[in-house]
Amino acid sequence: MSLMTREDVLRELELLPVWQLKAPLSSVSAMPALTPVQTNVIESAALLSQIVEPVIEPVIEPVIEPAPLVSVHVEIAAVAAPFRLLISDNASMAFALDSSSSDAQDVEALLSNMLKAININCSIDIAEATITTLAEHRVKLLVVMGEMAAHGLMGQLQTIEDWRSDQSANPLNYQNLPVVITYHPAFLLKNTDHKAKAWVDLCAAKRILQGL
């Protein structure tokens, strides 16, 4: 048997002719093979570069103007609490006031002096009167003393100063009954400088009564 040379073996394996590089391998910068993951990344980047980014229109919110402030006058309903009612001898004039007071004796003395000053004698004194009680006696004029009694009868919570200002501009009425509002005797004991104002109110009540 004849021995086969190296070339004969290569030729039998169809590996000849042998290709040779014109330049040595060391002078050629070989590109490393890409892994499947790297290939997918490159393909994805190429696809993303072809996607046109959508134009996002800015959202303009409507400007809401604040609602104008409206001044609301709130009427407070009359309270059902009873009040003290003093009625003159001929029922021409009545006095309504809150009966709760810590210095009742001094209040009674001042109240008595106020009635004497305008020549009024009250023979009827009802400790817990109501609006119905007032209607039953049919008085001609009502003097209300203090904020609590004014609130209960007039149905509106104001200071005495506000009531006095209102009645100086226009006469006050409660169900067609002329009304004059003034200070409570207990308030006058602690604020003696207001006694002159109370005297003005009582004199105004007398003039209104004379004109009826």
Rank of each mutant, 00 (worst) to 15 (best):
2 S>L: 06
3 L>Y: 05
3 L>E: 10
4 M>A: 08
6 R>M: 10
8 D>L: 05
9 V>C: 05
9 V>M: 05
10 L>M: 08
11 R>E: 09
11 R>D: 12
13 L>F: 03
13 L>E: 06
14 E>K: 10
16 L>D: 05
18 V>S: 02
20 Q>N: 02
20 Q>I: 00
21 L>C: 11
21 L>P: 10
23 A>K: 13
24 P>R: 03
24 P>T: 02
26 S>H: 01
27 S>W: 00
27 S>R: 03
29 S>T: 11
41 V>E: 07
41 V>M: 11
45 A>R: 10
46 A>S: 11
48 L>S: 05
49 S>T: 12
52 V>R: 14
52 V>K: 15
52 V>Q: 14
55 V>D: 09
55 V>R: 14
61 E>T: 12
65 E>P: 09
67 A>N: 11
67 A>L: 15
68 P>K: 13
71 S>P: 13
72 V>Q: 12
74 V>G: 10
76 I>P: 09
76 I>H: 15
76 I>K: 15
78 A>G: 14
81 A>R: 15
82 P>I: 00
83 F>A: 08
83 F>E: 10
84 R>N: 07
86 L>H: 14
86 L>W: 13
87 I>D: 08
87 I>A: 11
89 D>H: 10
91 A>Q: 13
91 A>V: 05
91 A>I: 01
92 S>L: 01
93 M>K: 08
95 F>T: 05
96 A>R: 15
99 S>P: 12
99 S>Q: 14
99 S>C: 02
101 S>I: 12
103 D>V: 12
105 Q>V: 08
108 E>Y: 06
109 A>P: 00
110 L>N: 06
114 M>I: 05
115 L>D: 07
116 K>F: 09
118 I>P: 02
123 S>A: 10
124 I>H: 14
125 D>A: 03
128 E>T: 06
129 A>P: 00
132 T>E: 04
135 A>G: 00
135 A>K: 14
138 R>Y: 03
139 V>M: 09
143 V>N: 04
144 V>H: 10
145 M>D: 00
145 M>V: 05
146 G>Q: 08
148 M>L: 15
148 M>D: 15
150 A>W: 06
153 L>A: 04
154 M>P: 07
155 G>K: 02
156 Q>W: 04
156 Q>P: 07
157 L>I: 06
158 Q>C: 04
160 I>S: 09
160 I>Q: 00
160 I>C: 05
161 E>A: 14
164 R>M: 09
166 D>L: 06
166 D>G: 04
167 Q>G: 06
167 Q>N: 07
168 S>I: 03
170 N>R: 11
171 P>K: 04
173 N>I: 01
173 N>C: 03
173 N>M: 11
175 Q>L: 11
175 Q>A: 03
176 N>A: 12
177 L>S: 11
177 L>V: 08
178 P>G: 09
179 V>C: 12
179 V>R: 12
180 V>P: 07
183 Y>E: 05
184 H>Q: 08
185 P>M: 03
185 P>G: 03
191 N>V: 03
193 D>S: 10
193 D>K: 06
196 A>D: 04
197 K>S: 10
197 K>E: 01
198 A>D: 02
202 L>T: 02
203 C>W: 03
206 K>R: 00
206 K>L: 05
207 R>W: 03
212 L>F: 03
